[in-house]
């Protein structure tokens, strides 16, 4: 009995240690980024890093003065919202169709596209979009980011749709519903939290995606994350401004995740729909 209690205590202790270590590994770069953004320029790269310093907003002021920061933010918002909407528009029916027909290869195909390195798409896209004169357009960016958002929507929603008892769909069929109507009237309301979660995840991944915007945007459509790259110069890098930009870029996804974290977990583990 005592041995069992001791083992339990050890397991609890090890679990806590694991969580703390994971937390440190995950949070350390974020904390470092946020702290650095409030440090004077010369202190950002100081070694050993200074933990006590006089916080300053000079990096943020420099950021807004030297770059059209708000325009870039608006570009990011347009591309992210556009690609998330596109992902939902095609991902919801696609996930439902895969669940309905139990033919999984289309879903695996989209996942493979997501797993493939972005550089694989970049050259063909660049050539294609240049041919049709769309380089630097929001459309090109939104379409390219749909490669990121579509698989997320499909794969987050698939288990949600699979979790609805088949008989509910069959009851709707017998009641007189077409498949399309079953999706909109029966299935979609039942996976609403899954849709919200997939939208949030798609938003976050699209917002943070760097490569496509770097190549396919121009000065007018550059997204925040691509614009932040400008602070990395060949001779010198403006670390302070870069950290300030990174902090501001990270803010929307962090706030979003914090607001819906409970929902996020339940949505990701969504399965059975209990009558």
């Amino acid at each position: 009995m005592n041995d069992a209690a001791n083992t339990d205590r050890w397991i609890r202790w090890l679990n806590t240690l694991q969580l703390v270590l994971a937390g440190v590994v995950i949070m350390a770069p974020t904390v470092w980024m946020v702290l650095s953004s409030f440090k004077p320029s010369f202190e950002v790269t100081a070694y050993p890093p200074t933990m006590i310093f006089s916080p300053t907003l000079e990096n943020y002021v420099a950021l807004t003065k030297t770059t059209p920061f708000l325009s870039y933010a608006l570009n990011s918002l347009i591309v992210t919202v556009g690609s998330t909407a596109l992902g939902l528009l095609f991902g919801i029916p696609a996930a439902f169709a895969v669940s309905w027909t139990r033919i999984s290869w289309p879903a695996i195909l989209t996942l493979a596209a997501r797993m493939a390195p972005g550089t694989l798409f970049l050259l063909p896209w660049y050539v294609m979009f240049r041919q049709i004169g769309m380089i630097g357009s929001y459309t090109a960016l939104i379409l390219s980011h749909a490669v990121i958002t579509l698989p997320i929507v499909i794969w987050v929603l698939l288990p949600s749709f699979d979790g609805i008892p088949r008989s509910v769909f069959e009851a709707a069929q017998v009641d007189g519903c077409s498949v399309t109507r079953i999706l909109w009237r029966i299935a979609l309301p039942l996976v609403a939290s899954g849709v919200a979660v997939s939208a949030i995840l798609a938003f976050v991944f699209s917002w943070n995606y760097f490569l496509f915007a770097l190549v396919l945007s121009n000065g007018d459509t550059k997204t925040l994350i691509a614009a932040a790259f400008n602070f990395i110069g060949e001779g010198s890098t403006q670390w302070g401004a870069l950290m300030a930009a990174a902090t501001l870029i990270a803010l929307p996804p962090l706030v979003l995740a914090a607001l819906v974290q409970r929902w996020l977990v339940s949505g990701l583990t969504l399965g059975a729909v209990k009558g």
């Binding site: 008892p165 008989s167 509910v168 069959e170 009851a171 709707a172 069929q173 017998v174 009641d175 007189g176 519903c177 077409s178 009237r185 029966i186 309301p189 039942l190 729909v273 209990k274 009558g275």
Partner: peptide, 30 residues
């Protein structure tokens, strides 16, 4: 002919009620 067009009604083993609808809506849906 699709199930939707056969004009038959079916009661399922697990009842298969629409979980997001009220009883009234479940009954009036068809």
């Amino acid at each position: 002919v699709q199930a939707a067009r056969r004009d038959i009604a079916m009661v399922f083993q697990d009842y298969a009620l629409y979980p997001h609808m009220r009883v009234y809506d479940n009954m009036s849906f068809a």
